[in-house]
Each structure stands twice: as C-alpha cells, then as structure tokens.
C-alpha cells in the first residue's frame, strides 16, 4: 500500500544521501552534533521530524520498523509515524523489540537489550546539552570544540548545593567516548546506562535544530556526576502491577479519584512479553497473548 506519489520513505534520494553523509560523520565522531539541512516534513517540527528524517534515510525495503513514544507502540504520535512509513515506504512493522531492525523512539530506550544490526533512532527536541546554561549557538559550539565543559558540572554542583543531590531526572547529560558531552534526548535517567556499550547503532535526529549525532555500537557513554555523588539511575520503588517486573521503568496510572494508583511497565512490548511468559503482577491476570 505504498503511496506512489512519493519516493520510497518520502524523502527524495538526494536528500537521503545528504542525511546519510551527516549520519556517517556523526558515527565517525561519536557525540558530535553534525549540522544538516533538515527538510520540512509533513508533520510539525518538535513532533519527531529529526527522527523521521534519520529513519527515512536508514530504511531499506527489507527493514522491519517499530515506533514507540513513551515506551509504547500505541501512543498516538507513535501510531502516526508508523503509519507514515507504512504508507510511504511499505516496510513491515512490528511491536516486538526483538523483531525490529529499525526502532524509532521518543523518550525511552526499550528494556530488552538491543542486538547487533539494530538501529535505534531517537527524536531529539533540543540537542544542545549546554543550551540552558548558554543560549548562544555560536558560543556552545566553541565550548564543544575546545572541550570547555566546566559549566556543565557547575549545573550539577548547583543541584547538590540546593537539593542535596543531582536533581536532573531526564535528558541527563552524558560524555561520549571521553570526548563530547551529549544530550541523550529526554529519556529518563533510568535509561542512561543502556546507552553505553550497546550492541545497536544509536542515532539522534533533531529536525528543527538541524542536528544529527550518533553513538556507534559498543561506545562508552558516561553519565556526568561527582565522585562523592555518583550517578544513580532512578525509578519508582515499585514492581509492575501487571507483569511483576522489578527492573523496568514504570508509568504511574491514577485509577480512581480517591488517590488510588497503580504502576505498569512503560515499555508495553516488554510487559506483554512477560505476561505471555506467565509472569503476573499484583493486579494482573493470567493471559494468553492479549492484555
């Protein structure tokens, strides 16, 4: 059901080549933000245009695509982007992390460890980790090129001085391969450890800000911290109420107006997989496939 009016995966081949060059440069210099001539896409800036362009440049007809937003395949924006590629590229789609060759994500890294050959594409709103410390692009680029990152630790210092701990819970800054400080996109810091040494290729696309960057497979990614205030990947101190998982990132769901709440895996595919394998949480029921 490919839409014949458009080229495969929407973008024309010349544009894809331009994006692929940016991706290759990003892979060659891990964590470095490569400027690219982002195109207007048929979805708004800020809604994943950077990720969509990177995905479009990576897709081949044999690919199997998974799209998640907030960890879930069925959130509206994930549905919309998945449909876009079904329509313009006609590729196979899946909700199973293990079956996907390309995964586009907003705000999460899947719980299941990724494998070699997989590409994880992140949607990035503000690629510049120094932006809220220094608003000028001209200055932040200089700070990166000269490795002047003292300011980044000043922010963490201020957190501890004020709150007794580093009060950054998502988009937690990292240093890639000992060189570039990078914004991992607004993933919860719980996901930060998965960035490091991953077998998959991780690509980051920021459409409005016209930047692409990359973390190649098996690259070291270190969350910034202090020796006496080490980075901690936090999550809600609960287990999944559906599948009983103790080590997955949880969504909090308000279930009544008397303050009742439950916690469920944010990664819907992971949760379903566990339930199918017979795990049951506090409020879960035995299933045979569907939730």
């Amino acid at each position: 059901m490919t839409d014949q009016a458009y080229n495969f995966a929407y973008l024309d081949e010349q544009t894809k080549r331009m994006i692929r060059r940016a991706i290759l440069k990003g892979i060659a210099v891990p964590g470095y933000q490569v400027p690219f001539a982002s195109r207007e896409m048929p979805m708004p800036y800020g809604w994943g245009t950077g990720g969509v362009q990177v995905t479009a440049a990576c897709l081949v007809p044999e690919d199997c695509l998974k799209v998640i937003d907030q960890g879930a395949d069925d959130t509206t924006n994930a549905v919309s982007i998945r449909k876009f590629f079904q329509r313009t590229a006609g590729v196979a789609v899946t909700e199973a992390t293990a079956d996907a060759s390309v995964i586009q994500t907003r705000h999460r890294i899947p719980e299941l460890p990724l494998r070699e050959g997989q590409i994880l594409v992140y949607q990035v709103p503000i690629p510049e980790p120094l932006r809220f410390l220094e608003p000028r692009e001209t200055e932040t680029r200089k700070m990166h090129s000269l490795e002047e990152y003292g300011l980044m630790h000043v922010k963490l210092y201020e957190d501890i001085a004020r709150h007794g701990q580093i009060a950054t819970s998502y988009a937690y800054p990292v240093k890639v391969e000992g060189r570039y400080v990078m914004d991992p996109s607004p993933i919860p810091k719980f996901d930060n450890p998965k960035l490091s040494g991953s077998a998959a290729l991780q690509l980051f696309g920021a459409g409005r800000e016209q930047r692409i960057y990359a973390v190649p497979p098996y690259t070291s990614v270190v969350s910034l911290d202090f020796e006496d205030h080490p980075f901690v990947a936090g999550k809600a101190p609960h287990d999944c109420d559906l599948c009983g998982a103790t080590d997955s990132y949880l969504d909090e769901v308000i279930v009544d107006d008397a303050g009742g709440r439950m916690f469920v895996c944010s990664d819907t595919d992971f949760c379903r997989g566990r339930k199918d394998a017979g795990h049951i949480g506090r409020l879960g029921v035995q299933t045979d496939g569907g939730a």
Binding site: Y170, P188, K189
Partner: peptide, 9 residues
C-alpha cells in the same frame, strides 16, 4: 504530546 515518562521521573 505525551510527556509522562519525563513527568514520572
């Protein structure tokens, strides 16, 4: 758009 992962954090 949903931001509940970040909000949860």
């Amino acid at each position: 758009l949903p931001h509940y992962v970040d909000f949860q954090a």
